[in-house]
Design a protein around this nucleic acid. Sequence first.
DNA 1: TTATCCAAAATTGGTACCAATCTTAGGCGC
DNA 2: GCGCCTAAGATTGGTACCAATTTTGGATAA
Lengths: 211, 211
Amino acid sequence: MTDTSLDNQESAETDATQLILQDIQAGIYPPGTWLKQIDLETRYDKGRNEIRRALDRLTLKRVVEHVPNRGYHVYQTDGKQWQDISEIRIMLETGVVPKLISRHNAADIENLRALAQDFQDLLLSGTLLELYESNLRFHYAFIDLAGNQELHTVIAELRQRTSSAPVSQWKTRARVDISAKEHFQMIDALEARDDQELRRLIECHIRQLPE
Amino acid sequence: MTDTSLDNQESAETDATQLILQDIQAGIYPPGTWLKQIDLETRYDKGRNEIRRALDRLTLKRVVEHVPNRGYHVYQTDGKQWQDISEIRIMLETGVVPKLISRHNAADIENLRALAQDFQDLLLSGTLLELYESNLRFHYAFIDLAGNQELHTVIAELRQRTSSAPVSQWKTRARVDISAKEHFQMIDALEARDDQELRRLIECHIRQLPE
DNA sequence: TTATCCAAAATTGGTACCAATCTTAGGCGC
DNA sequence: GCGCCTAAGATTGGTACCAATTTTGGATAA
């Protein structure tokens, strides 16, 4: 259930689409880089066909851009685009708040607190990638309380579109620190069933603008 | 700007992905049908490669399902799934209401009224497909007032996922009649800048439950 | 010296072929 | 007569090859 956009059973960790996407998000291919098929072929040890399929999928995901007879290059996310997608995420993640409030139980709160704690612990000991993944786990656990499976995949798709440089968002240690605190605040608001406060927190959290 | 999910310049009307998708949505391939590559090859007069790419893209769009070494078949949209996607559409289309209200001007209202009128006129004279497309034009013109380009594409993707049988939704003439009226009501609420009423109308409209 | 043009190298993208797998039909045994 | 096993047919999916296009490097001329 961790994979967001793959086929049913071919979703091995060795899937070229996922590998390339990870490397793009890790910053190995900076925006604008041309992804040559031969290079990818040798780097991931896959056939030409699978590479082509992967590039085509990433084009559909708007992660790379395709120029006929020229190749594929990593997409540059416009500032406007980033803002637009953030707006959509805010609409979705605040939109489910009523459902979250009405459906959660004590066990869910417990689980969320554990995940938030994981994130905070990794602040000291974990790598940036571990931190990133822990953050994802928390957020998906949060919205999955709504019981809307499609919402999970839609948000995953949106995240993949913006996070061509997820690392750069977290360059400041202070920002991540605040994120960890906000996670706990969100759980508190959820537990208190405070609709307004929870919406406000989520919006701040996505906008990455403290207060 | 009518194509929602294709490459930049290969977006001819002869693209296999679009053709197959249209035929699925037109009901030519009912849910569960196995799409054999050879048949598609001859039907659309395309190379094997393009057919494979199209099927892979449709798999990503969740329009067809892929079973390795067995083939691709038209996806059966679960009732639960349809409901989940409707929820998401409601969150998005009601979520932009504040922006719509703050940004629209007289010319926009005029334009929307013309589109709504087109839809109503086609009720008598147009084919079902024309009606469907007119409805799309209205809805996209509506949400595009928010100035959020990404929202347009996201909603388009959501629509494509559910509308494996868009025709069947409109089997009753009465329902389409109501839709046409609701369009005008939505415009009125927008013009009056009535936030609550507009949200209520949009929710009803998507849920297809009159009052 | 610099700009233009031509040729060679590299890359993409399509086509054809072939192996692996599944389905189906037929025959054999119980 | 029924069920199982086997072989043939069909379909998918991968690999290799080749044509079309673009870029790069160098040579020539102004």
